[in-house]
Simulated assay, not measured.
Amino acid sequence: MLSPTAWWIAIEPVDLRCGMDRLLATIAIQFGHDGAAGGAYVFRNRSGTRIKVVCADGSGVWMCVRRLREGRFVWPRSSDRVCEIDAQSFAWLCTGVDWHRLCARPLVGALV
């Protein structure tokens, strides 16, 4: 069962044709995080219509892909390369809702 310890959003878009090994390397090199520590990392394509989630637990790696039929995923803007969100915000993000307007607490980084 997928149950990450934290949710992290990569601010800059990535080429979603890459697989889990390349995304795990991105987590380590660009963000300085241990990709195998149990956190889930969310990446998006340039157009904002697809996301890919990578989460490594003790026994393997999960990779999930989601595509919106209409609209774009609402993405934060920040000077940081990655920002942390909670599980509820991630659930709203996946539906394509403007999730940062629904949050009761301020998020890390500036949002659009």
Rank of each mutant, 00 (worst) to 15 (best):
V14R: 13
S47Y: 00
C94Y: 00
G71T: 09
S59A: 08
L16D: 12
G38P: 02
V82D: 06
R67K: 14
V82R: 02
S59C: 05
I51R: 01
I29N: 00
R17C: 14
E12Y: 01
L68I: 10
V108A: 07
P106L: 14
Q88W: 11
A25V: 07
A87I: 07
D34L: 09
R101T: 15
T26Q: 12
M1I: 10
W92D: 13
A10Q: 03
R69H: 09
D15K: 15
C83F: 02
I11G: 08
V53W: 01
C55P: 03
L107Q: 10
V65T: 13
C55F: 00
R46T: 10
C94A: 12
V14H: 12
A40V: 05
F73Q: 02
C55Y: 04
V42S: 00
R66A: 07
T49V: 13
V97P: 00
A40C: 08
R17F: 13
L2K: 04
G19P: 03
P4C: 14
F43Y: 02
R81E: 14
A40Y: 08
V112K: 05
G39I: 02
R81H: 09
V54H: 04
D34Y: 05
S79T: 15
Q88R: 11
Y41M: 06
L107E: 07
R50M: 07
F43A: 04
I51Y: 03
C64M: 09
V65D: 04
D86I: 13
A110W: 03
T95L: 07
A6K: 15
V112H: 11
C103W: 00
D34V: 12
A28M: 02
V82S: 02
V74Y: 01
W99H: 12
S79Q: 13
A87Y: 07
A6L: 15
